[in-house]
Nucleic acid binder design. Structure first.
Lengths: 254, 254
DNA sequence: ACCTGAACACCGTTCAAGT
DNA sequence: ACCTGAACACCGTTCAAGT
């Protein structure tokens, strides 16, 4: 009864794992987590479930592959100047970004990816929980870690410091998917300002005895910018790294 | 054909939302996320699906309630001394914990909760993503925020600083569910040491060109303690808060 | 080697009917 | 008001069969 979807013609391109993952990402983006079903996928790819199972072991593996593909694209960041104006003065020496800026860029890359693909927040948690030896964790870890090494953190702290940064980024990005996803779910026309207003008001109406702090802070929710706040958190961790180093070198000198 | 489960006798206690949520948490703990089904739940509660739907709107609400219950318990931390030796010297004045220690305690409370309930990592991401105006976010936020206020952070920074801490905690706790859950999934007898060994080895075998940092750090994975590393991250953020304040007051004095 | 599509077991949810 | 349990629509996955 539902109107026949316009994609029923025989597919021309051969099926491949790549095409399947690509279709999965599209489906997740447009229809959300619950929108990714093998039935929707077979229709979109004009094939049967068996064909998909030939290329992919099961749904978990498909979700992992989709997550990995998006993360890989997100963390493969170059210096922003390089792509901003591709044809202008290619011989101009790239401004050597500080390691701190590099970390901010990588972090923002992931942050924005979660913003564009809200399902990524949950999947990141799920995939990371499933296998730290998978491809997703090392990818993120490596990208942040290389910049941490460029700070003058002693080698013995590399693992701890990088972990702290990665944890913050994942936590903050996950939490932010909230806002973008929820805001999107609201009736169109209700924009971000109205959305923050809703949250702020809800917080203001909490029980004064149980939630004094949250109530006190409700107003600050209203005007805040997610990216700005995200970066402020990064800077807090970076400041902590610097401060800890200084404390250590001071102690070492005595 | 399956052996009749021992719980088929008529239930004595009346059904209630509370009992349902309690059973859901048990099911999640023992059988994992995929183990929580309405069928398993009806069997355990010796009832039919309709009875459950009388108390709970749907599975999403049930998961939200389960998450909220566990988070509420985790975040309601008292000074550790109070419960350690309940009957010894009750009039002894409690050592006034510093706000920093308070933050560490709350954070560890959540960290350990995720450790005991690995499904919490995913659910935290999901629930937070679904509704920041729900009960889960304010609960965590409030508990951390009250301690942030006790540090001498200027009021204008309350929201940002508390958010940063909460994001770190959620990210780190989520990532850690990894380890406990994965370690649990391994054949019994393979303990944590062996598990870390596996991860470490996997990281050592990554492509040297693409993953130089992760490889360099692989060895540090082997001996590390999750809780210690988690706290080190908290301390990094706390150090960042202090450093930022000093910088600000220094600037203000000029 | 790659794909088809009917079939299977299982899941969340509904609802007419009971007490 | 609270509970029962058959029924429904939908899902992931399998597999004998085709090319």
């Amino acid at each position: 009864m539902a109107t026949r979807t316009r994609r029923s013609q025989r597919r021309t391109e051969a099926l491949s794992r790549e095409r399947i993952v690509e279709a999965a990402v599209e489906l997740l983006d447009t229809a959300g987590e619950s929108g990714l079903t093998f039935r929707a996928l077979t229709e979109r790819l004009a094939t049967g479930p068996g064909a998909i199972y030939w290329h992919v072991a099961n749904k978990d593996e498909l979700l992992a592959a989709a997550t990995d593909a998006v993360v890989a694209a997100a963390v493969a960041v170059r210096a922003p100047a390089a792509e901003a104006l591709p044809s202008s003065a290619p011989e101009e020496p790239e401004p050597p970004a500080s390691p701190q800026d590099g970390i901010r860029t990588v972090a923002l890359g992931l942050f924005d990816a979660v913003d564009r693909h809200p399902w990524l927040a949950t999947q990141l948690a799920t995939q990371l929980a499933r296998s730290p030896w998978g491809t997703v964790t090392p990818r993120i870890f490596e990208s942040v870690g290389q910049r941490v090494r460029a700070l003058d953190v002693p080698e013995s702290s590399w693992f701890t410091v990088t972990s702290a940064l990665v944890h913050y980024v994942l936590g903050a990005a996950g939490q932010n998917a909230v806002n973008s996803a929820s805001a999107r779910a609201l009736p169109p026309g209700v924009d971000r300002t109205r959305f923050l207003d809703t949250v702020s008001t809800a917080w203001e109406e909490l029980d004064p005895d149980e939630y004094p702090f949250t109530r006190a802070v409700a107003d600050q929710v209203r005007g805040h910018d997610d990216r700005e706040q995200f970066l402020a958190g990064i800077d807090l961790v970076l400041a902590g790294i610097t401060a800890t180093q200084h404390r250590e070198s001071r102690t070492a000198q005595e």
